[in-house]
């Protein structure tokens, strides 16, 4: 048992080194897009509020709108930064064979690598938030909400990991899985409140979205960080349910895929 933990620990360490080896790449790929997107949204909303930053648009003045986007940036960093690109590569390049020989499972390896990534992202988001607080861009919520927000967002990251893992597994059949990931990114970015608060969306769309996991991915956690949580158990229940469904599907896909792989030698 403890030996197995050692394997996990060593994998986490190796992944950490891999992520940090190409620092510039990591920054441009993972951190940069989030920062640039925030920069655009900050400028856009400043232009929209124009001369009148105190006016209320669906309950938001400029300051609370900016606060919303700052927390949306943090939620994105912690919640959905990870993409299992190297997993697709493992499968497509046939490197999966080595996992079939190792006494350490494919999913264990990639989950450990995900954990390593999360440590890194937590660190980066911590630094980001510290800077933003220091320059008075945003106020830190109470310890309770901060702690709760981080915890909930980590829960969401599990959901995203399940989805990313699924996209990775589809490499058994698909030549390019990045399309799936981008597609997921576009759809959820739009429906989860990442682009801007769901309060601005037409009512019919918002009430429809209540029955999907989307609002619980970005809009809800942002609200926690902003100290205005809606009933939380819905979020945990909804996302938890989807994680279980996703993990089950992943298990089935893996079984099918590995059969295909070993049978055909790909």
């Amino acid at each position: 048992m403890s030996l197995n933990l050692l394997k996990w620990w060593q994998t986490i360490k190796v992944s950490w080194v891999k992520y940090t080896a190409y620092r510039l790449n990591f920054f441009l790929q993972i951190v940069g897009p989030v920062l640039v997107f925030f920069f655009i949204k900050y400028n856009l909303w400043s232009a929209i509020y124009g001369e009148n930053p105190e006016q209320m648009i669906q309950g938001y003045n400029l300051k609370s709108m900016v606060t919303y986007h700052i927390w949306s940036m943090i939620v994105t960093m912690i919640g959905q930064g990870h993409a299992s690109y190297n997993m697709s590569e493992d499968i497509r390049m046939g490197r999966i064979s080595s996992y079939l020989i190792y006494p350490f499972n494919f999913w264990e390896f990639h989950t450990a690598s995900f954990l390593s990534f999360q440590f890194l992202q937590l660190f980066i988001s911590g630094v980001t938030i510290a800077i933003l607080v220091a320059f008075n861009f945003v106020e830190l919520p109470s310890t309770y909400f901060l702690f709760h927000g981080v915890l909930y967002t980590l829960f969401i990251s599990l959901f995203w990991f399940t989805l990313q893992y699924m996209a990775g597994l589809l490499s058994f059949w698909l030549e390019e899985t990045w399309i799936l990931r981008v597609l997921m990114g576009i759809v959820t970015g739009f429906l989860s409140g990442y682009l801007f608060p769901l309060d601005l969306y037409p009512d019919w769309l918002v009430s429809l979205l209540q029955y999907t996991p989307f609002p619980y991915l970005t809009y809800y956690p942002i609200k926690i960080f902003m100290g205005q949580p809606s009933p939380l158990w819905i979020g945990y229940a909804m996302i938890g349910l989807w994680i279980i469904i996703g993990a089950t599907i992943n298990h089935l896909i893996w079984k099918k895929g590995i059969k295909l792989y070993t049978a055909a030698g790909m």
Partner: peptide, 13 residues
């Protein structure tokens, strides 16, 4: 050159 591990990363940074 880069030494292994986290310290090595920091150092080479």
């Amino acid at each position: 050159k880069k030494e292994p591990g986290f310290l090595g990363t920091l150092k080479s940074f």
